[in-house]
Structure formats: structure tokens, C-alpha cells
Design a protein around this nucleic acid. Sequence first.
DNA 1: GAATTAAGTCAACATGACTGACATAAATGG
DNA 2: CCATTTATGTCAGTCATGTTGACTTAATTC
Lengths: 193, 193
Amino acid sequence: MTDINEPLTEPAEAKRRTDAGLPRKSARRPDAELLAFAELLFFAYRDFTRDSDAILQDFGFGRAHHRVLHFVNRHSGLRVADLLDVLKITKQSLGRVLKQLIDQGYIVQQAGSSDRRERLLFPTDQGRALAERLAAPQSVRLASALKAAGPGAEATLPRFLEAMVNAEERPKVSSIMASSPVPLKEVGKEEEA
Amino acid sequence: MTDINEPLTEPAEAKRRTDAGLPRKSARRPDAELLAFAELLFFAYRDFTRDSDAILQDFGFGRAHHRVLHFVNRHSGLRVADLLDVLKITKQSLGRVLKQLIDQGYIVQQAGSSDRRERLLFPTDQGRALAERLAAPQSVRLASALKAAGPGAEATLPRFLEAMVNAEERPKVSSIMASSPVPLKEVGKEEEA
DNA sequence: GAATTAAGTCAACATGACTGACATAAATGG
DNA sequence: CCATTTATGTCAGTCATGTTGACTTAATTC
């Protein structure tokens, strides 16, 4: 380490002053209880993503590939523009990972039937298989966490998570989530159900 | 685009086969309902982090700085090793952002009193102020989402989030979260409460 | 026929991860 | 007391994934 004998200032008394000597969880500035929620959310998401990250490594893919594959698999037929809006990344960032997924046979494109400029994205069998493999451990984790959360969690959690989404984004999120295996727009293919 | 007149394979019929023609939400392989939860979690976290990202830009910091500052602020006095374990990143990754936060006066170090090799981390007033500013919009978001989730969410959510954490990590998470403004180990400073 | 739109691409860059190796100071343990 | 281990910091290099800005092509729209 650099210089262990420097003053090293003693901030404990001076800096902790603001936090100390208050009832317990009074209505301080940021509200400690909400900070605890934020922290738990960090821990939950940290471990949630570690599941699939391990699998992705075996394929030479990263988390970005997982996200793309997930959305293409669950909302097959969605357009590149939809994916950009969902992921909130730039065309270039998406382009890189999407290209790899296409070149390696996990995703195929199809020109839109009404607007042939559009590229509708579909998983291949291989892509679907990988998507399911990536989803499996996360589903197990979610299922057990829902169970641990107790009854009512199945109803409470979606409401909480939806409310966490930016208000302007909620209609889009709802609309994409409503179209599970169905494309966002038209695919030119009939739903054989 | 490259070559729009290529075959462009038509996967819709062949590839959608597996998903179509099933009751509604039967016990298929990954369970569609859990995938919806995973997706909602993605959207929630996506927007949760966008709040503070905007503020961080004004300071030339990134999300990594936020995480470090958050934990140092809320668990002041924690050691570098604790931070590494919490964030699950390497010493080098932490070193870079921590150095910047120290150099720019947001965090100070103090040698441990019982083990002087340890560097206990504390926020400065400036650091505390930034941490609070970063936390503010996230707290607002969390508070309104908790409200929207309805009664019981305050009890259900922590249980859910804790259960999302890896089982082996839960003791550590609980222990760090139990020590809000208090250091993980000893600081050599008395809690003046 | 001109302008717009959807997609793809090039070049350059920033951030934040990673590995592996190594240095220093302090603590620990024969 | 000296050897080892531990906590921290650091150097050098790499990789994944994000960014901006500019540009092309094909197709649609006005």
C-alpha cells in the first residue's frame, strides 16, 4: 500500500455525528428503511444474475446475450426497434450481440410482411433451448423466493415491480408482457392456437 | 443492411410449434409465469438504476461509484475486504473506483485499531451528501412502489428479496444489513448513542 | 420523386469487469 | 525472532458492453 503512516484523518467522531443519537428510525432525510429495501434489491439482483452468468460463460456469451435471447424467445417476432426500446441500449450495442446470436444460429430474422424494412426476430430451436436453460435456475430461484415470501406474494410482487417501472414506460412494458409468444406487431403468421 | 434478399428462413411455423396449442399456463418446462416475474424484475431494476445514473453523470462517476458510496455510507467503518465480498468484484475493480472516491474527498480511510492492516472506510460530509442525493430518487420510487403494491408489501417484499439471495450469502447479508451505521467489525470508536 | 424510417455498419472511445503477478505493512505462529 | 500469512494496494493487459457521430441501403410515405 502507498503510505500507511500518513495522518489518515479520524473521521469517526466528526463524520458519524449526523447519524448518531437519533431515536431509531425517525423521519430522517432519506429514510433508512427505504435504503434497506434498495440494498436488499441490490443483493437479490446480484445473485439473480449470477445463475445464468455461469452458464453463459460456457457459451462465450455475456449477460447482454441473455437479455436479447430472453426477449426474442419470449416475445418472438419482435422487431429490432422494439428490442432497443426494451433494453434501453443503442443500436450499436445491440448490433454486436445480436449479430453473434444470429451468426451462431440462436436467432433468425424474417422480413416483416407488411413493412419489409422490419426485421422480426425469432429464436431457433437451438436458441429456444439455450433460453430455457438460462431461465431454469432463475425460475427455480424465483419460485422458491415466492414461496418463502408467503401467500399474497404472487399478487403483491407484480404490483410492486410494475410500480417500480417508470410511469411513461408502463404501457409499453404491459403491452410487451401481454404478448408472450406472440409478436409485438404482426408477423404474417397465424397463431395456430 | 447487408443483404435483404437472402432466403431469410421462415421459422415461424417450425419454431413456434413447441409453444402453441397448449392449454394456457400448464406446467411447461420453464413455467411462463416465472419468466414473467423475471422479466418484470429486469424492467424494475432497469429503471431503478436509471435514477441515480443520471445524477452520477454530473459528477463523472458511474454505477460502481454509487455502489461503493452507498455501502460505505450506510455501513461506515466497513473494511475493504467486506466491500469486496458484498460487491462480488475483484480488488482491482474496486480499487479504481475507491481510489477516485478517496482522492476526490468522498471517502476517507482509517487504520483499524485492533488490526492496523485494515482500512476502515468512512464517508466524508461530502460523501454523505452525495450518497443521500443519489438515494433520494430511488427512495421515492421505492416508497411509491411499496404503496402501489398494497398492504402487506412491507412484510412480503423483504422476505422475497432475502430469499432471492444465495443461501450461503444470507448470513452475511443479514449481518451487514443489521449494522446500519455501525461498522461490521470493531472501529475502535464508541457508538455515541 | 423527395423525404422519412428501419436496420446495419464503421470508427473511436469509456466504463467496469477480469486475470496474473507483485509489493508493502502488519499480524501470527512456530 | 524470523517465516508465513493476511490485508491492502498496484501494474499491465484483456474483455464485455456501453457510448457518440456519421454514413449506407432498402423500403415506405408523402
